[in-house]
Design a protein around this nucleic acid. Structure first.
Lengths: 196, 196
DNA sequence: TAAAAAACTGACTGAGCACTCAGTTTATAA
DNA sequence: TTATAAACTGAGTGCTCAGTCAGTTTTTTA
């Protein structure tokens, strides 16, 4: 089962950097040290290989975020939300390659044809939004976060914002890391109670 | 010059819905009523056709946003900023196809190889961010917007947020239009002066 | 150790596709 | 009206590439 893992690793790297369509099986084979036939032995099609990569990524997300939750930040919901945002940003930097896989359009394209891709993508985004949702709901209960908007919607908005900045970073259109401090301030402003 | 425009129109539609790589010249020809040769008569390569589409889009953006600015919303910078956000959202809905062209990864991919694409993309994003920047700077001058963060950075953050929600909408992962009200509220919270 | 199963190989195939080119049609200028 | 240029045509070309298959090597099981 050594080659199978190597194939997943190499393909993930190439799909992320060159795109699904622009990566050919021969190249994956070359970088893996496996024959083309071996790739099709483990994965029926190129699409299925991509799907397997996404499934693995979802596994890591679930593992890493539940570890983060368990690492038990004391304090209010608001404090936890701030921690979460920082964690998400640093996570997206450390897992840049996998995030590129999400930020590219390839998977969305395939999800228009193959429902398994749609399921996988929705599942991944739901993972993220659920974590945000949980801390916001907690903050609303303990009174540290404004109750003006439902937890789900705030979670969507925060996630959209944070994800967008991490996307700017991966595209290198703008040095987004220089925005992190201001981003965190903006998130706090969204979350805090109105003083009026 | 009739066919040339028709080719641009059809190609934009196909690139937006199917992607650059997944659209072949034969299909563009079929939907245009032109021969394949005609396409290469007007555009040296498939890439150049794509670039021409982006250039046209940039032209519309400049035209439409300067019309918007001229339509002269009275009131404070904050009020103008709110108008601008609403305008951007409705614009991204009405120009959904062209926004898909930006939200797909195709153009970014090409920009790694072809500097003309990078220039074009940066120019488009700069257009948008500049408009945000201008109203925020005005709001800071007239005292309606917090001066805690520089106009450019607030502009980047607002744009990132608004663009991300419009992306959610085009991907149909979430009915983002139902978020518009809350999105506007969140933007106001980012902009308003701290009461502490 | 022999037999069966699993893992692996790489030359080959057939379909898809961007682009060419030699020629035809249409518009413009003289 | 004729000459010239611009617009247009579509069959043909050469290349790329996902997926196949008949066979070989390695691992597991009995």
């Amino acid at each position: 089962m050594k080659k199978r893992e190597k194939i997943l690793e190499v393909a993930a790297h190439l799909f992320a950097s060159k795109g699904f369509k622009n990566t050919n099986i021969a190249e994956i084979a070359r970088n893996t040290g496996a024959a083309e036939g071996t790739i099709f032995y483990h994965f029926k099609t190129k699409e299925e290989l991509f799907l397997a990569i996404l499934r693995e990524f979802r596994g890591s997300i679930i593992r890493d975020f539940s570890d983060f939750e368990k690492s038990g930040h004391l304090g209010s919901g608001l404090g936890k939300a701030e921690h979460l945002i920082s964690f998400y940003l640093s996570y997206s930097v450390s897992m840049e390659e996998k995030f590129l896989l999400l930020h590219r359009h390839d998977a969305y394209e395939l999800s228009e044809v193959n429902p398994l891709f749609r399921e996988e993508l929705e599942a991944i985004y739901t993972c993220f939004v659920d974590v945000f949702d949980a801390v916001i709901a907690e903050g609303q209960r303990d009174g540290s976060i404004s109750e003006e908007i439902t937890p789900r919607k705030v979670a969507m908005i925060l996630f959209a914002l944070v994800d967008s900045v991490s996307r700017l970073n991966t595209y290198r259109l703008y040095d987004a890391e220089s925005l992190f401090k201001e981003l965190l301030m903006s998130c706090k402003r969204i979350l805090r109670k109105s003083t009026r």
